[in-house]
Design a protein around this nucleic acid. Structure first.
Lengths: 232, 232
DNA sequence: GATATTTATATCGTATACGATAAATGGCAA
DNA sequence: TTGCCATTTATCGTATACGATATAAATATC
């Protein structure tokens, strides 16, 4: 939990909102009122504004002029575009990883998959989803390049909105089998096979989605940030 | 530089500042005062601020707390990191391009190289540099994916700061030969060869830079007073 | 009774104001 | 002269204030 006495830094507030969106505690389409968020974090809206703009640049928030900010609701076309972008970028990533993977890094990847498995076994879909994203980020980390990692993180965060909007109930976005396959190909050092597996994996994710129906549920801001403390 | 008849829109102001930096009209390290920029564009600094923040997120501007905003001066490490990131991302890009290149798109690429050649023949280094960046963006455009194109654009813009800081006088960043080679490999549809050519090309660019000379600060000083003589 | 129009309210976007902090200036001592 | 400290100045970051616009409500009209 966080203290309420001293106001949080911009980076902390950003992180809170970002996580709330990516973790699904703020549903797509939900309104992000400046005054309301300001009250939640105990700051003025002048501090909230630039944070919303930053999230807008990352495409996980949209600002409609004179109407306000909302959690983005990526269209079907956008969902496809982000997925294609991931295919392109993460192909480069996994090829590099397959060339330069250290045993220690592979171990970390396997641990994440194990944690994913565990989370799914206890039906903690929230945590499972988070770890799924983290797997791909960690894969980018194998390249040792922070710039690339940030780009993958951005794509993954956008994808989490896609999943929130279009995932069929009961199905999981990333198959664990797919992840272990990726690791195996990397461990073998077969970059072509790894690249192929990655493209296949990402396409598979797309196929698990329901790009026609829509499920929209609204939740309150207070619930999303309940962990911060009650008195405000 | 530009007229300020009836206040410009935020996007226009952003574009002006962005282009000024990428085109080298604003040198790395130059101060970007809020009030000053506000006067230039005829708006209040409250409109300038978010633009500066956006440029900061793109890493072509740095904001030092309570000191102000400056055009970024990427370190040698950062220069290497951006270059590596380009190798990773643009490998994915060119592989995709090699798989799906349409003749019309290849024609566009060749036209850009021709324009590059022309600009260099008339010693318009500014335009030549701009077209060099545009070539890589257009290459990303071949994938038909705007998300990827934006990412490449961001990397290219950061690289232009690196070039401004570390390029050896008289040498050009991207060899025209390298670009034509990339196009040829794409036209042949040989994705492995294309990927190899891209990595080679980007590494070559790095080698034309003077990275292990002095630190950036003294470097610029030496350049500034080069006419005084070497010993002092 | 339903639709159109007017009024009211809430929220956004921008400008302005003000306290806080760093650079610049000037004076003083060595 | 050179180095150091106090004061001044300038600029930043945040809060507040205010006009503008969209949504909601209420009234009028058909």
């Amino acid at each position: 939990m966080t203290q309420k006495t001293d106001s949080m830094t911009d980076a902390e507030i950003y992180r809170e909102v970002f996580d709330a969106i990516v973790d699904g505690r703020l549903a797509p389409g939900e309104k992000l009122g400046q005054d309301e968020l300001g009250k939640v974090f105990g700051v003025s809206k002048s501090r909230i504004r630039p944070i919303l703009h930053r999230l807008t640049d990352q495409k996980i928030v949209v600002i409609e002029p004179m109407r306000g900010a909302f959690v983005a609701r990526p269209s079907v076309e956008e969902a496809r575009e982000v997925n294609t972008a991931r295919q392109i970028i993460e192909e480069g990533v996994i090829r590099r990883a397959a060339r330069s993977a250290a045993p220690k890094q592979i171990k970390i990847l396997r641990e994440i998959v194990a944690a994913e498995q565990a989370a799914r076994n206890r039906h903690d879909s929230g945590q499972a989803h988070r770890l799924t994203g983290e797997f791909h980020c960690e894969l980018a980390k194998v390249t040792g390049n922070d710039v690339v990692m940030e780009m993958v993180r951005e794509l993954v965060s956008r994808d989490s909105l896609v999943v929130a909007l279009y995932q069929r109930p009961g199905s999981s976005a990333c198959s664990l089998h797919g992840h272990t396959q990726l690791i195996d190909r990397i461990a073998e050092g077969d970059e072509d096979a790894a690249a192929h597996a990655m493209r296949h994996h990402l396409k598979e994710v797309m196929e698990t989605l329901d790009l026609d129906g829509k499920s929209n549920k609204s939740r309150s801001l207070i619930n999303a940030f309940a962990h911060l403390g009650d008195d405000r």
